[in-house]
Amino acid sequence: MTYLTKTAAIMALLATVACTDTTGGLFGGNGSDINGAGIGSIDEASLEYFQASIGSTVLFEVDQSSLSADTIATLNAQAVWLNTNSTVSILIEGHADEQGTREYNIALGSKRASSVRDYLVSQGVADSRISIVSYGKERPVAVCSNISCWSQNRRAVTIVNGGMGV
C-alpha cells in the first residue's frame, strides 16, 4: 500500500469511527500498521502526525500517577491536536510495570489513565470524548526485568479512535 492510499484508508476509517458510538470498537489496539518512517511531510490531522510528532505515550514514576513536566508538554500538544480535530474520540490506556501485584496494578493503571484524562479535560477536551481502560501489568511493551524496561511500561497511551498507538 502506498503512503497516499494508506493515509486515505486511515482517514476514511477515522471518519467512519468518529461517527459511530464510542462504546464499541475502541479496543482493537494495533489494527492499523502505521509506520511513518521516511515520510517528508505529514498531514497534521493524521494519526501518523499524532503519533510521530506529538507522541501517544507518557511515562510515570514508580507507583505514581502524577504528571511530570515532560508529560504535561506532551499532553498539551495532545490537547491542541484534539481541540483541532474535535470529532475524534480517544481511549486512554493506563499501564503498570511488573513489580506490583495484579489487582493493585489495575487500580494504579486506572489512576494513571484518569490523571491523563483529567489533564486533557482541563485543557478543553470534552470529557465525553474520552474513555479509559487499565491493563495493569498485563500488556508490557518492554519485556526485560530491569529499570530500562519497567520505566517504559509505566505508561499511559492515548489511542485515537480508529486504532493507533501501542
Binding site: I106, A107, S110, D118
Partner: peptide
C-alpha cells in the same frame, strides 16, 4: 475486578474503579 464470593454464596465482593478511584 478482584471479585470473590461471600462464604454463604449470597453475595460477591469486588473492586470497582470509577474515574481513577478504586
Amino acid at each position: 475486578f478482584a471479585p470473590r464470593f461471600s462464604p454463604d454464596g449470597g453475595k460477591i465482593v469486588l473492586s470497582i474503579s470509577e474515574r481513577g478511584n478504586t
